[in-house]
Nucleic acid binder design. Sequence first.
RNA 1: GAGAGCGUAGCUCAGCUGGUAGAGCAACUGACUUUUAAUCAGUAGGUCAUGGGUUCGAGCCCCAUCGCUCUCACCA
Length: 498
Amino acid sequence: MTDKTETATLSSDATEVRAQKLKLLREKIGDVYPAHFHRTITNAELAEKYKDLESDIETTDVVTVAGRVYSSRNSGMFMDIHDAGGKIQIFSHKDVTPEAAREMLAMIDIGDIIGVTGTVRRTKRGELSINAQEITMLTKSLLPMPEKWNGIADVEIRYRKRHLDILSNEESKLRFQQRSKILSGIRRFMEDDGFMEVETPMLHSVYGGATAEPFKTHHNTLKLDMYLRIAPELFLKRTLVSGLTDKVFEINRNFRNEGVSTRHNPEFTMMECYWAYADYEDIMDLVERLFEKLALQVHGTTEFPFGDKQLSFKGPFKRVPMPDAVKEVTGIDFLAIKTDEEARAAAKAAGFEVEKDWTWGECLAFIFEEKVEGTLIQPSHVTHFPKDISPFAKEVPGEPRLVERFETYCNAWELGNAFSELNDPEEQRRRMVEQLEQAHARGEKDKQLDDEFLDAIDQGMPPAGGLGIGVDRLTMLLTNAPSIRDVILFPARKAKAD
RNA sequence: GAGAGCGUAGCUCAGCUGGUAGAGCAACUGACUUUUAAUCAGUAGGUCAUGGGUUCGAGCCCCAUCGCUCUCACCA
């Protein structure tokens, strides 16, 4: 394959060496990136099948494995190759490996993907191995692998070149495998609970269902300004009106043109569901059952660590009305306060800076966010939100300033938001018009009234409980990830100047 | 959008009050035939993010720009 005069000409620059080896390989064996190669067993299956094989025992079982070369010892006599599920040691020795296969070793670099056919054995030192009879180059890698002990630590590279992160950091690989299982776990839970998954538009000509700045785009043929959806809520409710199903859900991306942080990405995954003939208390039960199931799936138990905290997803969760929570922490009894003026005065007296036009509900919500939110470490449902900030929720009977809404908090993060959904068409229209006026007053010129939604509500939407769950944040908690970018494969980045 | 911090070899990181640019891994040349963070000897690899400035002299000090991280704001 190659003799000393050829190898002596190799440069010491890693990428140049690989390019030269690729050229030599093409001359010698032709196709360095073959289209057809079939392994007979994966590395994980191999480990399972031969877990009882004793040390220093050689079998006559011939297998074909494949994977990326992660390390090489004794001039390639021992190589570890990894596929997505595990690793296997390749043993290439003159007693067991034909000359032609051993010549290939000089052309193999760490990072290359190879296929190996040979017999299964366990070495004296107890390492399950393949005695190589045939070695096939499947993919020559042109770039060096990241450092083998520390992997990629530079967060910029970890996010921009995610393949290097996952290639070199086992923790990162496991986390994304776990995310996939969480996603399918949510889907299975919802389906088992009788919910039907639907897909509603990502491109909206009128955006709504949440208060957020949208991404704006344009459809050329329709000559129509459009928005990437900030929430699927209004379409899912229209689905509920249709009678297609009494239990509907969607798992998909929402887009919000706002700040990025360790807990915010411009596109994020939301599970949203609507359940006819149920109310927000039924939804609380549902959230608890879902969280408990996911914790069991990921950790095998409902108790698990996050950072230096210990979380428990064992239901039932603490349930506390917002006015009670605020009273407990600050002593301010909002239920005893009658007017907006009094609310602002009470807030000011307690040391909060409030805007002149704030309502009773806005003062209550503000103090909740300032003082209570940060204390909610274990999963908790905060109920009885002010109506002023909840345009889609039904009033609490006997307390028209509050609505049947709850948010689920954990680790001081908002994870879920749910209501007994408003289905009174006149009340719904009133509240949406009010929201629209407020938006226009803030300078949001693009905000429009969603007539198609209001028309559907006029048709009659069954009473229902609805819920939105932030899947990324839930995944962060379940996989002990400090940043949302650790659970999103390709998080939003600025364009690189070079 | 505001504040704080960071940017040194392909990767992980040192580099003191300003005085010749360093290590480990990876790579290359050899030795070594049962290793597993293999080992041993040697070699090569740098516009110290970029552009200005101060200084006899700048990786280090100053200014600007770019990128990243964290905190805050908007928000989930």
